[in-house]
Design a protein around this nucleic acid. Structure first.
Lengths: 204, 204
DNA sequence: CGCTGTGAATCATTTCACAGCC
DNA sequence: GGCTGTGAAATGATTCACAGCG
């Protein structure tokens, strides 16, 4: 199994596993089996075992997994061990919500810079960060910032993405309802909130 | 094809197709082929044709699709034709961003009520809506509200979901980082922002 | 002729079921 | 004995390739 191609879907599940494991750690559990974790997260136990097995042997047969070890290993796999310096582009309502969202800290993301193109916002402080002019994006490389969160309107998104790529960014979390075209080495994850809601009435 | 089970993935793509079609309509295009739409959205043309074919014959062989007809049909399939009365639970930063987000309107969602459990927020106005006490959720049925957006912290989410189900809601868009347990008839779509970001460093 | 609609083929993911090991 | 780790089987989704039709 060790040599096989790892499905993207497995990577998608790892952060979910991590959350489950953090929950078990909180409750004071030392060990956990794939079945207990699966029950908690509503997954299939075999899938959990297989997903982890792509990356190594983390469990003990007949016993299960050590919670803290598996947390550490999962963080390793996802490269969440060290802090990730992140820039936010777009200081509108969504941007503000992102800044205030506690979830980012848990995964080691530090939003160190905030950019906008609106002169009225530039220079103002939001959640302790001064909003900078979007034309300064090229300073990101110098500042060691390697991830970008795009929270601009759709028409500006591609332009911002281009600037982020130029600034040497390696990953983009895109909230704009627009498909971003970037070089293959840059990973884009798009979250389109209205799009998700758009399929809800279908099931009603 | 008509009789087959429709993959969830197809439903997930329909709102994306709709956005592409709206773009073509804006540019004044009368007709569009599966290939042109696929180019624009970065999909496979056969997939687009197959996805639509689950629901009927919408195209003309040798010609393509009529943009406006296909928009109407897609809206029909997704049941976006009529307005959807929606309640928002959680008037924090995320809730505020959701209220300000223009995307909902496009798909016909009207956020008619906002709830919170924080006494300091109840009674205050946000984006023109008065924040109500979360204990009044049972009034939703009377008010004809059938969808709920959960933007509360994780620990409160399940309780809120239970109350929404009791109030006769048929769909939930969940932003809380927590798996919601609801009856099968209720559809839940969860968007966990930190979780999406959590897999970004892996690809770096 | 050109593009849709769709069976068939391919490819990917999930689940099963059990050998292997603590 | 019990749980992991994993080939093999089953399931599901995507893409191909072309028949069918305007």
């Amino acid at each position: 199994m060790r040599y096989r191609k790892i499905p993207d879907e497995s990577i998608r599940r790892l952060p979910v596993y991590l959350r489950g494991l953090l929950y078990f750690a909180e409750t004071g559990a030392k060990g956990v089996s794939s079945e207990k974790l699966a029950d908690f997260l509503h997954f299939n136990p075999a899938q959990i075992r297989k997903d982890f097995s792509y990356f190594g042997y983390f469990g003990i047969r007949g016993v299960g997994y050590d919670v803290n070890t598996l947390i550490k290993q999962t963080r390793n796999i996802l490269k969440l061990g060290n802090k990730h310096k992140t820039a936010l582009i777009g200081a509108g309502n969504l941007g503000k919500a992102i800044l205030a969202y506690p979830g980012f800290g848990v995964y080691g993301f530090e939003i160190l810079a905030v950019f906008d193109s609106d002169q009225a916002k530039i220079g103002k402080k939001i959640s302790g960060r001064t909003v900078e002019d979007v034309s300064n994006l090229r300073t990101l490389k110098k500042r060691g910032i390697s991830l970008g969160i795009v929270a601009t309107p759709a028409p500006a998104a591609q332009q911002v993405a281009d600037a982020l790529v130029d600034a040497g960014i390696t990953g983009i979390l895109n909230f704009a309802p627009h498909h971003l075209i970037v070089p293959k080495k840059v990973k884009v994850i798009t979250i389109d909130i209205a799009m998700e809601l758009g399929r809800l009435p279908y099931y009603a």
